[in-house]
Amino acid sequence: MPPTTEIVEHKIETSADGSLRAYLRSIGAIVWKDLAAEFRSRELIGAMLVFAALVILIFNFALELDIRTRETVTSGVLWVTFAFAGTLGLNRSMAIEKDRGCLDGLLLAPVDRSAIYFGKAIGNLFFMLIVEAIILPMYSVLYNVNLFQPGLILVILLGSIGYTAVGTLLASMAVQARTRDMLLPILLFPVLIPLLLAAVKASNGFLQGFEMAEIMPWINVMIAYDVIFIAVAFMVFDFVVEE
């Protein structure tokens, strides 16, 4: 089979280049492409933001967020909002690639497939962090709570990393299915539950001023989750985009 040997040769070539830098550069190029496209169209972040604001609004009426309830449910409301807005972004970011044949173009590029995964994942992470960076002050002002605590920011960062690591992998499968818009949340949420659970518990711990000893186990769960899923995605992404 000639194509296989070609790929093998190519891999040897790039590793002989001593090319961690080349690898990082191709990841950077993909991230940059996503950010530049988003900067020009502004459709993805805009939609995620409006959707996130709507989710918070709905929670406001559904839970009657008065002062006492707010203390206990804030972390839950925040994470549900991020998770829902995140799915919207993930679906869109992969659908763009699929619909206009961009994914095929990316696959033709002479880079390792995992670089495409990391590029897309980091791009998605950026979008998610931007949305979170706008939602947090908004929520703080609307409900008069201070969400800018270093601990909470760390939890949000860890949670977003895990979310986009799994989300990018599953979204690139979901967009190739017939039932794609329906499929992503169904595939993603059950796998995410351990992460979301830990994130909600840890955020709640920081917001209510628990001791670190109580919060640390949850942070460890999140770190373990992030490491496991980045590693798994790194290993299997090739098979997801293969034609």
Binding site: L169, L170, M173, Q176, R178, V232, V240, E242
Partner: peptide, 22 residues
């Protein structure tokens, strides 16, 4: 449900394997 949404048998098998592992 993932498998039901994909027609190409090769891709269905690959995605099934990936999701089964994840």
């Amino acid at each position: 449900m993932l498998r039901q949404g994909i027609e190409d048998p090769d891709r269905r098998a690959r995605f099934g394997a990936v999701y089964g592992i994840v």
